[in-house]
């Protein structure tokens, strides 16, 4: 079973380019209906399938995403 992960999105810096969407293997991300103060639709998490693989953060041109992943524990 994949490890659990989570991300924190700095929505104010997000420009809604959507490059991260296709980089996510678990379709965790989608574009919000809301806009940030710059007028961009920003990326939001839409499910809890995140494994903390960091693919989204790695392709993000604006360094918007911080990634967490739980430590591997014995038995997993």
């Amino acid at each position: 079973m994949a490890r659990k992960g989570d991300i924190v999105i700095n929505i104010e810096r997000c420009k809604g380019c959507e490059v991260c969407l296709s980089a996510c293997p678990h379709e965790v991300l989608a574009l919000s209906k809301e806009v940030n103060s710059k007028g961009y639709h920003y990326v939001v998490k839409v499910n809890s399938e995140c494994t903390g693989c960091a693919n989204c953060a790695i392709v993000c041109p604006d360094a918007v995403i911080t990634v967490y992943r739980e430590k591997a524990t014995s038995g997993q």
């Binding site: 989570d6 924190v8 903390g52 953060a57 995403i65 990634v67 967490y68 430590k71």
Partner: peptide, 14 residues
């Protein structure tokens, strides 16, 4: 899930 977001679990930041 909340507990994952903690410094020891950080794998990627700017």
């Amino acid at each position: 899930e909340k507990s994952i977001i903690s410094p020891e679990n950080l794998v990627y930041e700017k």
